[in-house]
Amino acid sequence: MNQLWHRFKTSRILDDCPIYDMHGHWGSTPGIALPAAGEGVAHTLLRQMGVRRLVFCHHHALFSPDIGNDANIAAVRKMPDVLRAYMGVNPNYPEEIEKDLARFDEYPDVFVGFKFLSGYHQLPLEDPRNAPVWEFANARGLPVLMHTWSGPYNGYENVEAVAERYPDARLLCGHSLFGDWDRAIELANAFPNLYLELTAVLIERGHLERLHAGAGAQKLVFGTDFPWFSHSHGLGVLLGSGIDEEDCRTILYRNARRLLGE
């Protein structure tokens, strides 16, 4: 077994192996009674596992334009040493996008990039209403986390279209096009600016191993969907997978640090 496994078994926190979680959320959501929906519990869990960085988008920012990205700002400022946010983008509300982009630079301590949830918002990633965000991210080389899954909004063709069009943005395929594993690998190998993010991938055995074999550790980024999934779970899957220690480190924090410019 990987030595990191044995060390993490006896210690929740390893100073030489920080956890960078590039796909998180915050707050309550309607379909589930999340134990860590409350800020106090979320803070405790993040401290307990020593998570060095959680980059998230608040559920409310994604699902309620009346709340919007203010929810992200408030959350980050209560735990500024750990939290950073993706600015949530809902192209059904282009007027909100315009306002949000105009204030992006006011919050360098909060926002590191953008989050698309196209399958839920039911407009494709390459929709013209998203273009201002893509152009902004492309011009600055910012990370863009996309919910990627099957369907007409954020599947293979949609991701391919934005990856071709915006070569300087850092594209993170959240959930790694869940289920469409071979074509996710194809995209990761075709586009230097595209990474596969592991949220939900880690629930079932075998998917991580397949992505690692096909795309390599340099193209995989650790994520949990926290507060949906626990960090100990994601860590256990990664360290128990048979992937060697150096590649585990690359997936757990090295790629994320590079993407975040840390």
Partner: peptide, 17 residues
């Protein structure tokens, strides 16, 4: 097992508060 990772289940239990 074999659907889920036994290592994850163990780490979850070991590190639960």
């Amino acid at each position: 097992f074999p659907y889920h990772s036994p290592h994850a289940a163990v780490l979850d239990l070991l590190h639960a508060g």
